[in-house]
Amino acid sequence: MFKIAAVFLSQLIFFTIILFLAPALFIRQRVYDLHEEAAVQLPLSPSSTYSRPIDVTTPNLNSISFFLKNPNLKNQQTLVLSVFNQSGVIRQSTFSGRNVGDPSWLTYKFDPISGSPSHLTVEISSLGQSVDSLYLLANKSGQPVYRLTHKSTDLRQSLNQSAANQTAKLGSLSRPFIVFYFIILITADLFLFVPINIKPQNKAVNRLKQPE
């Protein structure tokens, strides 16, 4: 009885580690990426500004990335990335065009913005003198392609989020599959310990050598 309980417990611990603890421990920030096709190149000429409204449904937004193109890697202008809410600028930083690849994501990491849902606007503007040497990649509608990340501030929140995600996932999983899977698994576990009489005078057994 103790051995069966030990087997069940070890499997339960394994599933708990893989399904709940591993995501909580390792996924400390979640990427929100629409995977939009970069169909249009918008020139980041001096004093040009591009913005896009976003609806943030997950708390602790901690970075925004724009997809840029820097042909021949020659751009040196100053870029400003900003995040606005209804009150005004809540996060802002400057970057050099030297940091932009061809193409590459330009990421602005900042202290997490708590609270959700919220309507924010993300903006990129140029203060430089170079003309048409840097391009912002946009979707077919001309809206800048972007990527966000949301950070879990502490392990407890991460665990709660992981638990919520997995519970929702397992709740949506096919019921017949769950039932079938655990019946098979438990039956296999029990088989390890249930006594079975096997006739030793078996042809296949007789053909086998004794172990060394």
Binding site: P23, I27, R30
Partner: peptide, 14 residues
């Protein structure tokens, strides 16, 4: 990390 995509699709971003 991507092997754990079935557990959480965000693993691919690690």
């Amino acid at each position: 990390w991507g092997h754990l995509t079935a557990v959480d699709s965000q693993f691919i971003n690690l």
